[in-house]
């Protein structure tokens, strides 16, 4: 789902050998900035996403809140999470957060994926699924700290936000950015977006009275290519389970990268062991065996000989 002509690949899931063309062309790291403080929850970005990616309509439901569906889905990659948050003093506030793939610098999905080329990371930071290589194991779901990849039981493949890699590859901004009416979404280089976000957070702290305002760009996964400005960056969980310290399970880092090869080596020692046993000790044969003619090497001479 990418324009391979303009996007350079940096990482490929489960790929043996080097990545062809890696590092031959310098690309700026891109980033989407979401300012939750100016989001009005209008869902224009959701519509733009479904439109651009030409997805079948997703049924909504009503549970007496503004939440139209509980979570993103294989055909619905971008969802505003509405949270009625109660302050310590008893007052309420709406916390609205545009929820989608965070395009992690160290993507848990890619680390977990066992299929060669099913997930790639471009050198501009976008993490993209290549459904033609996906084997439908859903390990990416368990590797992702943000619960993003969604399985389609009919195609047996997994889908998620591409950060509009097709548009970005052609020099356009993602569809959601284009649709946002309040200007709470921005797209540019990671450096520029980080600068804008920090400025906005400073403004919120100093002018608007949000003492804990800050930028969400978690370093536990090397930062993300989608960053948030939050009114209260100390408690991101309030924004619909945004983890303060997102982590990739050790199964997909320590176990997969280090102990899997070691474990295989250990198991193969069994093979080496039995071969060596045959060579050094030989088989146990049914008794009686025919008389021994010679043992090689000959036993050491006992005492004086000749």
């Amino acid at each position: 789902m990418s324009d391979r002509g303009t996007l350079r690949i940096q990482q490929i899931s489960a790929h043996p050998g080097p990545v062809a063309g890696e590092g031959t062309q310098r690309q700026d790291k891109v980033c989407k900035l979401i300012d939750t403080t100016t989001c009005i929850g209008c869902k224009a970005c959701e519509v733009a996403c479904v439109e651009w990616n030409d997805m079948p309509f997703q049924t909504t439901y009503f549970d007496n809140t503004y939440q139209t569906m509980p979570d993103t889905d294989w055909n619905y990659w971008n969802l505003i999470k509405f949270n009625e948050d109660q302050h310590d003093d008893g007052s309420f506030a709406w916390l609205m957060r545009k929820h989608q793939c965070m395009h992690c610098e160290d993507p848990g999905c890619l680390r977990a994926c066992p299929a060669d080329g099913a997930i790639v990371q471009y050198s501009n930071g976008i993490v993209d699924f290549q459904q033609e290589n996906c084997i439908g194991c859903q390990f990416c779901v368990s590797g992702c700290p943000f619960n993003i990849p969604k399985f389609n039981p009919n195609t047996k493949k997994v889908y998620k936000c591409t950060l509009c890699s097709d548009r970005v590859g052609a020099g356009l901004e993602p569809a959601c950015i284009k649709a946002c009416p309040t200007g709470c979404l921005h797209f540019g280089t990671k450096e520029d977006m980080k600068f804008m976000a920090e400025n906005r957070a400073t403004q919120l702290r100093e002018v608007s009275g949000f003492q804990n305002a800050g930028v969400y760009d978690p370093d536990t996964i090397g930062g993300t290519h989608v960053i948030y400005v939050l009114h209260d960056a100390t408690k991101p969980e309030r924004y619909g389970n945004l983890p303060a310290k997102p982590r990739i399970p050790l199964s997909f880092t320590v176990w997969k990268d280090i102990f899997k090869p070691i474990g295989l080596f250990g198991a193969m020692l069994g093979f080496v062991g039995v071969v060596m046993h045959y060579v050094f000790e030989g088989p146990r044969r049914e008794q009686p065996t025919p008389p021994v003619v010679r043992i090689d090497p000959p036993p050491p001479p006992a005492g004086k000989e000749n």
Binding site: S251, G263, L264, L269, G270, V274, P283, R284
Partner: peptide, 30 residues
């Protein structure tokens, strides 16, 4: 799932390790 992944792998490795002895002893070894 992340935990199961490790346990499943370990079970396979242990069994593979054992099968070498099994196949050896039931053929060449004895």
């Amino acid at each position: 799932v992340a935990i199961s992944y490790v346990v499943h792998d370990m079970s396979a490795l242990i069994m593979l390790f054992g099968i070498f002895f099994h196949v050896y002893l039931s053929t060449f070894g004895e």
